[in-house]
Computed example of a mutant assay.
Amino acid sequence: MGKADFLSPKAISNRIKAKGLQKLRWYCQMCQKQCRDENGFKCHCMSESHQRQLLLASENPNQFMDYFSDEFKTDFLELIRRRFGTKRVHNNIVYNEYISHREHVHMNATQWETLTDFTKWLGREGFCKVDETPKGWYIQYIDRDPETIRRQEELERKKKQDLDDVERTAKFIEDQVRRGRESKEPEEEPVFTELKRESEEEKVAFSLGSSSSSIQSVILLSLFFSITPGPSALKATTSAKRKDQVHSTNPKEKKKKSALDEIMELEEQKKKSMKTDNWIRSDIVVKVVTKKLGEKYHKKKAIIREVRDKYTAVVKMIDSGDKLKLDQSHLETVIPAPGKKVMIVNGQYRDNEAILEGIDEKKFSATLTIDSGPMKGKMVEGVPYEDFSKMA
């Protein structure tokens, strides 16, 4: 009986049945022929072409097995390189994608009996990095392409060059500071002597404000008569000063600031001017404080991988590995244990690494020791919690 015509229902039915994968036990690797059922496979085994292929294979069986093994290995590695690259992936995922191609080389025609044996062989030969886990074997392709190796070497060389430039600049600054200290002449230390009055009748006068006339008179009397004012006199002068302040005739008159108060205000303004609105930076550990993302991320720690537009951070969650894009207001700094390294993110010593020495819980501040830059070794006290964070 001859074959059916191309457009006949029988031919169309045969093509539909032959489409896609068939059972492996009815596949002949030597002839590369797939049969649809047991009867077809039996007829194929009794055919003249199959017998001729068996005679050729029996003369040199190792040659055919090596050929199929090499084809299987080449196609398998090419699939990993194109589909997954250098990512770590389960070997069964790669194998299922490989056998989805109809014309693939079956493993029962190669030198490996199981997928585990083939995975171990890839690790021994250095084609992939393999590791066994409770979920099975994982493989990671090792790219030995000369162009890829050259790009990696150029990238490493550029990173090393940038690092050398930073170290060279830091060393130059340290040398400049050392030369400045050596060239500076040593200042004479002040000598403190005892205060002695030349004559007993000498008067000592102090010029104080008009509001403190009562205090001035008490001090003058005590110096003149060489007496010390008692607690009652001091109490009286203090109450008089308070009455003068309360019953001031001019309400618009402002109290004069002392030199100490002015110095303290200047120091506070100086500290505030050194602080900036944006404090986030890469490679530090932060805590997610927003509740809009749900309990999965609330109060969980993350690492800042990238900073965009000064106020937006791309973070990677430590426990789940998820990547999120968050605003600076949704994050806060993380305080590590004493002795750990931190990064100063705001204030006078911004962008300097430091070591956490201790924490003052009452003042919400900490004591740090600078560990990088020209100020290395300097101990800084009273650094607020929000001005430093744990390093990743």
Rank of each mutant, 00 (worst) to 15 (best):
R178S: 10
K378P: 00
L155Q: 11
F225E: 15
K272N: 14
K241E: 15
L7R: 08
I370E: 01
L331P: 06
K287R: 15
S214D: 09
R157Q: 13
T237R: 06
S273W: 09
R308T: 07
H44L: 04
R36A: 05
E267V: 14
D309H: 10
T86M: 14
D175K: 13
F206H: 11
G2Y: 06
T110Y: 04
V130A: 02
M343R: 12
L163M: 12
D175H: 10
S232M: 13
K256E: 15
R308N: 06
E78P: 00
E174I: 10
K196A: 01
K255L: 15
A240W: 13
K390R: 08
N62P: 02
H106W: 05
K10N: 02
M375E: 11
Q111D: 01
A11C: 03
E156Y: 08
R157A: 11
K362P: 00
G40Y: 03
A170T: 07
E262A: 08
E182T: 10
S13C: 02
A259H: 14
P336A: 07
W121P: 00
K271E: 14
G358I: 00
K17S: 03
L155K: 12
F388G: 01
E97N: 13
H44W: 07
V383K: 02
T369E: 12
L331F: 06
K129E: 01
Q328V: 04
M30Y: 07
K135P: 00
T312L: 08
G20C: 01
H90M: 08
M65A: 11
D351S: 13
S211P: 01
E147D: 08
V246N: 15
M379V: 15
E125D: 04
E103G: 04
P251L: 13
G230Y: 04
I12W: 00
D360F: 08
T74G: 02
D70E: 14
C31H: 02
Q63P: 00
M65G: 01
T74Y: 11
K296I: 09
K3E: 08
Q51P: 01
H298L: 12
P251M: 04
D309G: 00
F206K: 07
E154I: 06
T249W: 13
E253P: 05
Q245K: 15
Y297T: 03
M274V: 08
N14S: 04
L260Y: 14
I215S: 12
F224Q: 14
E306Q: 13
Q29N: 07
K340E: 15
K362M: 07
L220K: 12
F72N: 05
E268C: 04
T238P: 00
N62I: 13
E154P: 00
S49A: 11
E153H: 10
K340M: 10
K271W: 04
P251Y: 13
S365M: 09
E113Q: 10
S389A: 05
L221E: 14
S207I: 14
A11F: 03
